[in-house]
């Protein structure tokens, strides 16, 4: 066991981990942050996306030991300070960008990373950026729409409610 310390959602946390402990497992099992989900074994589905030192990573494909000393942000830390939904979360609700909710934490974290890099992405840029986030429920239409809306773009012309 090795001791790791990291800043998770602004709070310093530490724990003893095995070499093989994944960052996703550390967050879920040691820290009780179960909003980060595990949906595949091959680094494809993106349900586990968190930010490590400000960039999106798949926490099921990173060892907890590698995150020692890092700043980690998860879905649980995304809401505004007063507990209200942040602009991306609110857009997902307003535009029905989620159904079962399982892929949603990863989607929100990827969307946040995208908007940091590219504040006004086009539909195509959003679709390409979400290559590593699989959703089985929505057909992505409303996810794309929500991210466009979160970036301040007018989505009224996009079909359907």
């Amino acid at each position: 066991m090795t001791k790791v310390t990291m800043t998770v959602n602004g709070k310093t946390v530490s724990g003893d981990v095995e070499g093989r402990t994944l960052l996703a497992s550390f967050l879920r099992d040691d820290q009780g942050l179960t909003g980060t989900h595990i949906g595949c074994d091959t680094s494809q589905c993106g349900a586990c996306v968190v930010h490590v030192d400000g960039v999106a990573v798949k926490s099921c494909t990173m060892l907890a030991a590698e995150a020692d000393g890092a700043t980690v942000d998860t879905i649980e830390g995304q809401a505004n300070a007063d507990g209200s939904l942040n602009v991306i979360q609110q857009a997902f609700q307003d535009h029905h960008g989620l159904q079962c909710g399982f892929c949603t934490p990863g989607m929100v974290m990827s969307a946040a990373a995208l908007l940091k890099e590219n504040p006004k992405p086009s539909e195509q840029e959003i679709r390409e950026y979400l290559e590593g986030n699989i959703c089985r429920c929505t057909g992505y239409h409303n996810i794309v729409k929500a991210i466009m809306a979160a970036s301040g773009q007018d989505v009224t012309a996009i079909a359907a409610e």
Binding site: A56, S110, A113
Partner: peptide
């Protein structure tokens, strides 16, 4: 290559 999160690692 891969996707954005993969490219970051």
């Amino acid at each position: 290559i891969g996707d954005p999160a993969v490219r970051n690692r």
